[in-house]
Nucleic acid binder design. Structure first.
Length: 811
DNA sequence: GAGCACTGC
């Protein structure tokens, strides 16, 4: 019997609310967790026929003009006479010389006429002047003339990501500088150092969007569209730069990759590290290497300084300050040590790290806590959604943060159910789910404006916290939880668990309500609970398998891992485990130095284990390698098989996929799928739809495959001109044995009670239901992933023989 | 009987 539900949400800010909350619809569920019982009638969500989706699974992008143009509330300040006005267009003769195959992008029509670009830039300049950061331009320039390291806290909406590079690009220190660089034999060579600014981003879309925006603001074409382009970007599978590039946006991974070849970053005068607060493992490595660079002697740069700007949205700058100061202190002590006894020498001025805090432009967001602890946040969210809908004026969409697909779909169904019983005089409700596994076209619906008299209710996972901005949101409902992946060193297994978020994540979620107007954030937890949350997110470096990070460091000559400047030092146990794993796959010599195998693996865009598999396959011949590359490509993208959620489709899917399934397991099934997809020359998209295979995922697979093949050709693991179609039958035994070279530890054998137990550690493990071997009993299995969700699952599973496992483990 | 979010010459 549905009870009458009253709004429990008090107003925590002490501001008196205008009126007492009204009771909301009678039609709100009574029992806790009622949604859990409704899961049986899930509706289908298969990849729709749509040709407009971007290629290679590029994350969704809101169709908004730019990531930085914020609503303007203040009067423009008097003109500050900046010296970074848009550049005059480069002369036409220069452009005309390069007539051949520049990828025409959005600037194709302006290849020889930059006037429109300039006009646009001039118009944008008016907007730039109003950004909160704009008034700080001179201060920032001045500080960086004197110091090499700057920490910059810029709240959301401050404009830091687009403006900082433009403030700096015309500084005197930002020009290419002739330098003498010592060679190994003691002589020197002349080279030019600097001239470019790099700005790192954690995500690909962000790097590309920002580059596009800054190019517009600077009145220059983007990337490779013209040789005169001053702004470019570089992300995996897509690099767009020109000989004149001065400002380059890149992903952190890309900068790390560049550092493998150019450890002194000689192209750059400055590196701007953006979004440090997100603390992905790549950003930790980046700042570690950068600290070594700025506090060292810079011999590889011929002494030319590198400016480093570290930017964050949260004010936790103290640890970063200490981090860079420690680097300078160590350097100073070393110098003191060297010049010992020479006390008359003038002491160099102590280097300082400057800091700058820029207020953001956000509208106020009122926080409303739950007065009592919430047991079922799906149920609580349902009530709050209708409370908002009944009480609050239009317009104003609602963004609800949930933990995963399951809770999103459950709440979706509930909201739709109760919305049908609503008073028809009320505005309608449009429920839109949003999570990464959702097909592109369904994700795009979130960005379309709501029909008239309709309120959008977006039910999202963490994807909406950082990766995606939805406009129109004035109300945020935050369940206070998120799924977090945690690597457990001792068990060698990943867990995906629902955990409370951090304060800074809670603030981030709340901020999503104040981007366009004043908003409200309903927290489905008490204020007391909020106060007990961690300040910041746990850095990824404490939560993941470190073997790839360590191999990266070793490949850059960091032999003593313990002395590496970690922003947060991982526990010794985790480091040791990673070292052991690298030793196991022969990536390291017994001395701890990197081996030739290790060096080869480090250059591959793969985890060390997958890299090892690739090298092992190469030893089994080119045919085997070609096949293993196909499989590895599948393993390094999202699931290639679509979920078949509806009953009718399920049977059709089984039939359609039957010719792809291989009894050897998931690996050979993936191979069959890639081969069939690749040999489909007529219409791959239709083929994918027929077989319920994700076309988006397969496009990424083809990108990775192409990249890996080309790298293997370069490394002479594959013959140069292997243009011919690969048609020989696969050799399952060789393929699986190659995989065992990397995954020998990821094996389990069937025990008499019918369950599988790991060969190393004797732990119980179940085959994941997504596997073709689900429910099958074989002598032994090898798997790519060992994950704990509700129980321990092996994912990416193939049948193997125990004697192969023995051989692989014996080395 | 199941899928937080990112990323890589």
């Amino acid at each position: 019997m549905p009870e009458k539900v009253h709004t429990h949400f008090g107003d925590s800010d002490g501001e008196s609310s205008k009126q007492a909350p009204k009771p909301i619809s009678d039609a709100v569920p009574a029992e806790d967790g009622a949604w859990k019982k409704r899961r049986s009638k899930k509706r289908k969500r298969d990849e729709p026929a749509d040709n407009s989706q971007p290629r290679n699974g590029e994350p969704i992008q809101a169709p908004k003009p730019s990531p930085v143009v914020e609503p303007v509330t203040q009067e423009p300040k008097p003109d500050t006479k900046p010296d970074d006005t848009p550049q005059p267009p480069p002369n036409k003769t220069q452009v005309a010389k390069h007539k051949n195959n520049f990828k025409p992008k959005s600037f194709s029509d302006t290849k020889t006429n930059f006037a429109p670009l300039r006009e646009k830039a001039n118009a944008l300049y008016e907007l730039r002047k109003k950004l909160p950061i704009f008034g700080h331009a001179d201060e920032i320039r001045q500080k960086l003339r004197e110091q090499d390291v700057m920490l910059l806290v810029g709240e959301t909406g401050s404009g830091k990501s687009t403006q900082i590079p433009q403030f700096l690009v015309n500084e005197f220190w930002c020009r290419p500088t002739p330098a003498q660089i010592p060679k190994e034999d003691g002589s020197t060579r002349s080279a030019s150092v600097g001239g470019c600014i790099a700005i790192t981003q954690p995500r690909r879309v962000a790097a590309i969007t920002l580059a596009r925006r800054v190019a517009e603001e600077m009145g220059t074409p983007l990337g490779s569209s013209s040789p005169a382009s001053k702004v470019g970007y570089s992300v995996r599978f897509d690099t767009s730069v020109s000989p004149s590039t001065r400002v380059k946006f890149l992903t952190e991974g890309m900068l790390l990759q560049e550092m493998l070849h150019d450890p002194w970053l000689t192209k750059y005068s400055a590196v701007v590290v953006d979004e440090v607060h997100e603390r992905g493992i790549n950003v930790d490595l980046t700042v570690g290497f950068l600290r070594n660079l700025v506090s060292g002697k810079k011999e590889g740069r011929g002494g030319v300084p590198l400016k480093v700007v570290v930017m964050s949205a949260t004010a936790d700058m103290e640890s970063l300050m200490g981090f860079f100061q420690e680097g300078f202190k160590i350097q100073e002590e070393e110098q003191k040590h060297l010049s010992n006894g020479n006390s008359g020498e003038k002491k160099e001025t102590v280097k300082e790290i400057t800091a700058c805090h820029i207020k953001g432009r956000q509208f106020p967001v009122k926080t409303i806590y739950s007065p009592a602890p919430v047991h079922d946040f799906v149920d609580a969210a349902l009530k709050v959604i209708f409370q908002i809908h009944y009480k609050e004026p239009m317009p104003g969409d609602i963004l609800v943060f949930l933990t995963g697909q399951e809770t999103v779909e459950a709440l979706e169904q509930l909201v739709n159910e109760y919305a049908t019983g609503m008073d028809p005089s009320l505005p309608r409700i449009l429920v839109l789910p949003l999570f990464a596994a959702l097909p592109q076209a369904a994700q795009q619906r979130v960005f379309q404006p709501a029909p008239p008299r309709t309120r959008k209710v977006i039910l999202a996972t963490n994807i909406a916290e950082t990766s995606v901005t939805v406009s129109g949101v004035r109300y945020v409902v935050d369940c206070g939880k998120a799924k977090v992946k945690q690597f457990r060193t001792r068990l060698g297994l990943d867990s995906l668990l629902v955990k409370p978020i951090s304060k800074s994540a809670a603030i981030q979620r709340k901020g999503r309500a104040g981007r366009e107007a004043a908003g409200q954030c309903f927290r489905l937890y008490t204020e007391k609970d909020y106060l007990t949350l961690d300040e910041t997110n746990t850095p990824e470096i404490l939560r993941c398998d470190l073997s790839q990070a360590l191999l990266n460091m070793k490949a850059r000559g960091v032999d003593d891992i313990v002395r590496f400047p970690f922003l947060t030092r991982p526990p010794r146990e985790a480091l040791e485990k990673a070292l052991l794993q690298l030793l196991n796959i022969d990536a390291l010599q017994d001395s701890g130095k990197i081996s030739d195998v290790g060096l080869q693996i480090a250059k591959l865009p793969l985890t060390p284990t997958l890299g090892r598999v690739l090298l092992a396959a190469a030893e089994n011949g080119a045919d085997c390698l070609i096949d293993v590359i196909d499989i590895i490509s599948c393993l390094s993208v999202e699931n290639i098989f679509l979920n078949t959620t509806s009953e009718e489709k399920k049977e059709a899917a089984e039939t359609a996929r039957r010719d792809l399934f291989r009894r050897e397991g998931d690996h050979l099934t993936m191979l069959a799928t890639v081969r069939a997809y690749a040999s489909e020359n007529a219409d791959r998209k239709a083929w994918a739809e027929r077989h319920l295979v994700s076309h988006r995922a397969m496009q990424s697979v083809m990108d990775v495959r192409k990249q890996l093949r080309s790298q293997c050709r370069q490394a002479k693991l594959l013959p140069r001109d292997d243009g011919r179609d690969h048609t020989s039958d696969p050799a399952p035994v060789l393929i699986l044995q190659s995989f065992l070279c990397g995954f020998g530890n990821n094996t389990a054998r069937l025990v008499p009670d019918g369950s599988y137990r790991t060969v190393v550690g004797n732990q119980i493990v179940a085959i994941h239901p997504s596997s073709v071997l689900y429910g099958k009993k074989v002598e032994a299995i090898m798997y790519n992933e060992f994950v704990f969700t509700n129980r321990s699952y092996a994912r990416g599973v193939s049948a193997v023989q125990m004697d192969w496992v023995g051989e692989a483990l014996a080395g």
